[in-house]
Design a protein around this nucleic acid. Structure first.
Length: 378
DNA sequence: AACACGTGGCA
DNA sequence: TTGCCAAGTGT
């Protein structure tokens, strides 16, 4: 493809980045040397997958304090790593990062693109980003920012992801010319702060070189991506206490919120209304705090929380009674953290639907099927 | 090749 | 409020 010389086109990015880069705890002071701590680069890059810098910073600091190197991370428990990742999302990243740390502790840090690509959780982008920032290898790292910047500078009107190979070939000489770590970060920084979806061209160091801007088409490059469908669900999420313990579901191995503890829950029936009979007739004291909508990447959940106290009994299959003192230390996603913080909050009296949900959970009705409605009353 | 996979910021 | 998107990867 007859692209203009990237080393020339992107030259203004180097001084721009040297003077305007944002401070980040994983950034090396010397942009021209190999990074003093490749593990820190790796941790930051995994955390930054689909996650903004400002969100990552406090998680990165806590993680590095607790797991300063690959050996410490490799020795941690699943609950520990998920606890430090809790709230950051995409929890598989934490497990992959630990597996990568174990491989690094055993075999040393890979210093080639191929070696990095073989680590779990590192795809084409992350392997290249680590190679460039940790080891100064001229490997083009194409993330959403880099694709957007490249597509605009070159006025590429198609989806730039379809031209990843050509764009990598185009970018590589510029990395070698201006420093792999510097230019890698500069392109992404530009995409994150200036060449954003609604671009701020007036403050762009590449405004004179940008083909999209010259043609006035920067706002529609790159074309919007089709989104995958989001399913809707409504659930009852129950904090059930008995004696000094809470009824919880231990972490699953796969699926949504894998690796995290959760409160038991059950699909809400849409057709049950009206006042409940006194729940005390069933040995239950309960209330329903205000609900909320929980949004995931591909699912929207209307959450109807219940807080209840019941008579002692065996835990239903798949659930565990967990001593109250341990509750605060269990890794939970945002939804379950939110109910954990609300277990002492006031609520409305239990509804019929809420009572049925409690009974379904306590009777061991399979609670993990999103579509499963609560059973009818007997 | 689609789809699963979390959460938060921003217009 | 709703929708888009973020330093993507695994299956």
């Amino acid at each position: 493809m007859p692209f203009a010389d990237a080393a020339v086109l992107l030259a203004p990015l180097a001084p721009w980045f040297d003077s305007l880069r944002r401070p980040m705890p994983w950034r090396a002071a010397d942009l021209d040397a190999p990074h003093p701590d490749p593990y820190a680069v790796l941790v930051s890059e995994i955390m930054l997958q689909q996650t903004q810098v400002a969100t990552v910073i406090p998680y990165f600091r806590r993680w590095m304090e607790r797991f300063p190197g690959p050996a410490a991370l490799a020795a941690a428990t699943e609950d520990e790593i998920h606890g430090l990742w809790a709230g950051l999302g995409y929890y598989r990243r934490a497990r992959n990062l630990q597996a990568a740390a174990a491989a690094i502790a055993a075999d040393g840090f890979p210093r080639t693109l191929e070696g990095l690509l073989a680590l779990p959780g590192l795809g084409p982008y992350t392997a290249a980003a680590v190679a460039a920032q940790a080891f100064q290898l001229p490997t083009p790292a194409l993330d959403g920012n880099a694709f957007r910047v490249a597509a605009r500078v070159l006025a590429l009107e198609e989806d730039p992801r379809r031209h990843a190979g050509a764009l990598r070939e185009w970018l590589a000489p510029a990395l070698a010319a201006h420093g792999p770590s510097r230019l890698t970060q500069a392109v992404m920084e530009l995409g994150a702060t200036v060449c954003v979806p609604a671009p701020r061209c007036a403050s762009c160091p590449l405004q004179g070189a940008c083909a999209a801007r010259a043609r006035g088409i920067q706002h529609r490059i790159p074309p919007a991506q089709p989104r995958t469908k989001v399913t809707e669900a409504e659930i009852h999420l129950a904090a059930i206490a008995s004696g000094g313990a809470w009824l919880l579901r231990p972490p699953g191995a796969k699926g949504l919120l894998a690796g995290l503890w959760s409160w038991p829950w059950t699909g809400a029936a849409a057709d049950t209304q009206g006042a409940a009979e006194p729940a005390s007739a069933y040995g239950i004291e309960a209330r329903e705090p205000a609900g909320w909508t929980q949004v995931y990447s591909h699912r929207r959940e209307a959450v109807r929380p219940i807080v209840a106290r019941v008579e002692p009994g065996a835990a239903p299959p798949g659930l565990e009674w967990v001593p109250e003192a341990r509750l605060a230390s269990l890794p939970m996603g945002r939804r379950d953290q939110r109910l954990r913080e609300a277990v002492d909050a006031p609520g409305e009296p239990l509804t019929v639907a809420g009572l049925e949900a409690l009974q379904a959970i306590l009777q061991g009705v399979k609670a993990s099927s999103p579509a499963a409605p609560a059973p009818g009353r007997s």
